[in-house]
Design a binder for these strands. Sequence first.
DNA 1: TTAAAATGGGACTATTTTAGTACTCATTAA
DNA 2: TTAATGAGTACTAAAATAGTCCCATTTTAA
Lengths: 145, 145
Amino acid sequence: MLKINKLADYGLVVMSCLAQQTRPLNARGVTELTHLSLPTVKKVLKLLARAGLLVSVRGAQGGYALARTPELISLSCVLVALDGELSITDCSQAAGLCMVEHFCGIRHNWKMINQLFQKILNDITLADMLKPKMKLNVCLPETVS
Amino acid sequence: MLKINKLADYGLVVMSCLAQQTRPLNARGVTELTHLSLPTVKKVLKLLARAGLLVSVRGAQGGYALARTPELISLSCVLVALDGELSITDCSQAAGLCMVEHFCGIRHNWKMINQLFQKILNDITLADMLKPKMKLNVCLPETVS
DNA sequence: TTAAAATGGGACTATTTTAGTACTCATTAA
DNA sequence: TTAATGAGTACTAAAATAGTCCCATTTTAA
Ligand code: FES
Ligand code: FES
């Protein structure tokens, strides 16, 4: 449960690959470094560029580079770009998606959990993911109301 | 992203419904209280019973009841029963599922995040979910190694 | 003893989502 | 001018999900 789709997973691999480059890298280059298939890499790169996380340089000698430094790229925004907003249940995000909404006493609590997870993913940056052993500093009793 | 499947969602609704009963309730009774469809309710009840979260009483006047008090039922075990183990990415749980495992520098960090989420869902109980406004007390810098 | 009420287990189908691929157009450096 | 490269879009195949149905087993109650 709670799986992100593969595209999002690959997306993070690609992002961390590009974070280690000093100049734009093209799709083939990413393929060689990550061992992911070329069509998949292309798809991921396009989506990330469209989301504004990568800048693309067209034409010969073109390629992709991070739009910001890894410290300013949250895990959350990468995942959202490739796998949509975080919503643990259909009902925890928008209204009207769940048929038992009116009879359900747990919707509010799902929303709280959803917010907590969102905050966690927001606080982790690409730079953190690049570290061999990331530190997770989670201490958010104030998230709760 | 990070959605649990509908069965798991319904499962929690059913569990919270049963938590408010004083005697075993049959599938039809659950349907009436939750407004979920009967076949779906039956499926969920069977899965929860098999997982040991509910005890079933067969025969006339039979039905289902919680196997333990709500304080002793974690959100985690309900979700696992209906939607499998928590694993954000294929690679964060077991080895050998991801084709780029050998070239991937972020696998360890995914595992950390996975553990954190697991701990959060473990610490929330069914009793918490029944409260109108749950308190989330997350403060686990020691989870990290 | 019998009939009715209920769960248990499993199989099945339609739908939706996901993964992966292919093709054409636009842009740019050399 | 030309070759390299990204942008956009459409498509197919495979997998997961949701929802339904059927029949055997068990137990209560008439
Ligand atoms: S299960 Fe959908 S609103 Fe509660
Ligand atoms: S993406 Fe699978 S091991 Fe890292």
